[in-house]
Design a protein around this nucleic acid. Structure first.
Length: 448
RNA sequence: GCCCCUGUAGCUCAGAUGGAUAGAGCAGCGGUUUCCUAAACCGUUGGCCGCGUGUUCGAGUCACGCCAGGGGCACCA
């Protein structure tokens, strides 16, 4: 434990094989909301857990920048441009009402004075998408989440992947024509009804580029992949997998994995904060980070398993007291640091050599030692199940045992021999708490 | 109607590959402070694990059926 240090808890079950973790993947049609925040925290923690179990992880973000939603975005911005020019506002059907649309329109008008009413819709679209991607990048940065790869739906059309996928599906014999549309017989793969892949107007439904996208993932060597999404996308799971099966490329039935999470509600002052993208009332990821801090945001998003609806209690998250679990865990770590600080001991020099661990006989220290030894198993289990909340629960438990021990037993003032053994225990607990928090993307402060 | 998720202490939730008296936090009650951070700790009250049947030596965990709540069921994404 001591000699492994910051590597304590790692495994090599992944054996360096590539693993693609796709998460957030928000359409560039607005700022990131709390649901994306949960995905960001979950996806990043799962990615980290996989790294700790020996996988070579790529964090990937997929932009749906080619569909109807983007068209609506462009039309919404144009509507605001027209409003600026004429004073008349007509937001189109399915359009976006948020205040940020107005801001994008203002920026567009400033950048492109020759097109103040947005006559060049393609130009408006590109501008708005770019602006919102930058906006989302700032949100992700506030959370401390980084991606290795950004994939664009539009590039799948431009690169011919969509056409190629459709051609392969047709060759595979699982398609048929009806009502002027082309259908994929997804019922051959467990769907409850067949799905349109090419609409009668000649455009493709969303899941076709999705299938094409996953073909590119597979071909890039990612034979292991997981997508973290909201449970409202659960109907896509069967379709995408069905499409991949129908291609006959030898892709396994369960590819890709999905980790779907339930809804997030935000409580503030005892009331639920209503979220309505349409009406423009909005709790963004950045609002939350500004309010309660990055560590608390990440922790609260990770403390429940994905299958459970999450209530984000803003008042609790910003409380700096015993009630707030994230402070409780960080405090346990800071306390241990405090021992070394007060004792003027460099924790890094602790080796455990020549120490008689049999002297750690108190109940509180035996329990703590047992918990620390359990850390690698917890990491492995959380990684295997793709469930970071197991690690959260473990850390809370270990923090409790740490506080308990700290209050019952003295370290610096213990007799010779026992003192050295307890310093090793303090060091080991410090390592485990810090490693655990690091996996979750939460800081481990040395003092608070 | 079909699909997915959930149902465990008063409340919010944990309970890996089935395994011994089912755990935590909060709330409640009772304590602890000349002490490495009281931003804390200790003790204690409180559970037909939604209901039923089945598989098993053994079920909170697996299967099936009910009941209740949430979400999803487009030639939208």
């Amino acid at each position: 434990m001591i000699t492994a240090g910051e590597r304590y808890g790692r495994h090599d079950s992944g054996q360096g094989r590539p693993f693609n973790v796709e998460f957030v993947s928000a359409n560039p049609t607005g700022p990131l909301h709390v649901g994306h925040g949960r995905q960001a925290a979950l996806g990043d923690a799962i990615a980290s857990l996989l790294e700790w179990t020996g996988w070579q992880v790529t964090r990937e973000f997929y932009y749906n920048d080619a569909g109807v939603q983007i068209q609506n975005l462009a039309l919404s911005v144009r509507a605001r441009l027209v409003e600026r020019a004429t004073g008349r506002l007509e937001i189109p059907e399915g359009g976006y009402h948020g205040e940020y649309i107005r801001e994008i329109a203002a920026a567009y008008a400033a950048a492109c004075p020759d097109d103040a009413e947005g006559a060049d819709l393609e130009r408006v679209r590109a501008f708005a998408v770019q602006a919102l991607r930058e906006e989302q990048d700032r949100d992700l940065k506030a959370l401390g989440v980084r991606f290795d790869v950004y994939s664009l739906e539009s590039s799948l059309y431009a690169g011919g992947n969509v056409e190629e996928t459709v051609a392969m599906l047709r060759r595979g014999g699982h398609t048929f024509e009806e009502g002027g549309a082309t259908w994929l017989r997804t019922t051959d793969y467990g769907d409850d009804k067949d799905r349109v892949m090419r609409k009668s107007d000649g455009t493709y439904t969303y899941f076709v580029p999705d299938v094409a996208y996953h073909v590119t993932k597979w071909r890039r060597g990612f034979h292991h992949a997981i997508n973290v999404q909201g449970a409202d996308h659960h109907s896509t799971v069967v379709r995408v997998r069905a499409g991949l099966q129908a291609l006959g490329l030898g892709i396994p039935e369960g590819y890709p994995e999905y980790q779907l999470h339930q809804m997030v509600t935000v409580m503030r002052g005892g009331d639920e904060v209503r979220i309505s993208k349409r009406a423009g009332s909005y709790v963004t990821v950045r609002d939350l980070v500004d309010d309660v801090g990055r560590d608390a945001v990440r922790f609260f998003f990770l403390m429940r398993k994905a299958d459970t609806p999450l209530t984000f209690d803003v008042d609790l998250a910003r409380t700096q007291s015993e009630e707030n679990p994230v402070y409780y865990i960080q405090m346990a770590h800071a306390r241990l640091c405090g021992i070394f600080r007060v004792g003027e001991i460099d924790a890094g020099t602790i080796t455990g050599d020549g120490v008689d661990f049999a002297r750690l006989g108190e109940e509180s220290e035996r329990l703590l030692v047992a918990a620390l030894l359990d850390f690698p198993r917890t990491v492995a289990s959380a990684a295997e199940a793709r469930e970071p909340q197991r690690l959260v629960a473990y850390l809370h438990d270990t923090a409790r045992l740490t506080h308990n021990w700290y209050h019952r037993e003295r370290v610096l003032e213990a007799p010779d021999g026992l003192r050295e053994a307890r310093l090793v225990l303090a060091r080991a607990a410090q390592i485990v708490l810090r490693n655990g928090l690091t996996i979750l993307g939460i800081s481990a402060p040395e003092r608070m």
